[in-house]
Design a protein around this nucleic acid. Structure first.
Lengths: 138, 138
DNA sequence: CTGTATTAGTTCCAAATTGTACCAGTAGGC
DNA sequence: GCCTACTGGTACAATTTGGAACTAATACAG
């Protein structure tokens, strides 16, 4: 079971990498770097930089950079939080929401596509292991 | 379905990040940086730097760096490939194989543990979506 | 009120990452 | 053989990333 866990983890990891890599160009067309996209996609759920950093396990300093870029590109706006003047409440612009939705759609499409396209062995292995893991919870 | 694909991707992505993050310290105890671990775990399947770069979607220059570190730590050895003198055939040392196995075990344990521990909503959502995706292939 | 501790966000700069240019070796045409 | 095109790996420079120190604002004890 330990070995299977490792295989599962590896396969899953690889699948996500491949999907992300395949979408990099599409994201670039939308004007988004990979990391910027992660931040953009998180803004609605976590409207403050500190929250984003915690949610995405990114250093605060990095979030500062990505937020700056996203603001410069017009995808988000900073507003001062009246309740706490230290906070920068982040707001999606119309363009930002649209770019995010397109990006997520591209990612989802690629994910589905790849799952059907990875090596048959890898795929059935992934399916078997996920199934097993999900049907016999610890 | 597009939305679900995006949710699935996001949840999965987050789960893997959290697992990796949780294991970082354990890997460090084994003497491994995260990226180095990826390379170490790939050596058996892809014994040449160029193969590793292709498999892990890493730049060749980065693989050079990680391989150098792994060699310095005594986890792998470079051998010249008699059939092609440009190639560096990479060989796991005993210590390397052991470190890799320990690292994979740690990762697997953490993965199982986290799957049982993420937010109940997140978890059932993940389960539902994965199930759906896997039982109705495109 | 003050004083102390904590938090949000940024800046600074060292460290990690990676694009590009490079050299060595291989493959194949002629 | 020679020449050209290509591949494997590395080195160096330029960019990106992130730890630590910093400033501003809040919280809350006394």
């Amino acid at each position: 079971m330990t070995v299977d866990g490792a295989q599962l983890w590896t396969l899953n990891q690889r699948l996500l990498s491949v999907v992300m890599d395949a979408c990099t160009e599409e994201l670039a067309d939308l004007g988004l770097e990979t990391k910027e996209f992660f931040v953009l996609a998180e803004v609605a759920a976590s409207p403050y930089p500190a929250e984003i950093a915690a949610a995405l396990l990114l250093p605060k300093a990095s979030v500062t950079v990505y937020v700056r870029n996203l603001v410069a590109k017009g995808f988000i706006r900073r507003e001062i939080d009246d309740a706490d003047l230290r906070r920068h409440r982040l707001v999606l612009t119309t363009e930002g929401a649209e770019a995010r939705d397109r990006a997520l759609a591209a990612l989802a499409a690629e994910y589905d596509r790849r799952l059907a396209r990875i090596t048959p062995q890898d795929r059935s292995e992934l399916q078997r292991i996920l199934q097993e893991m999900l049907t016999s919870p610890a």
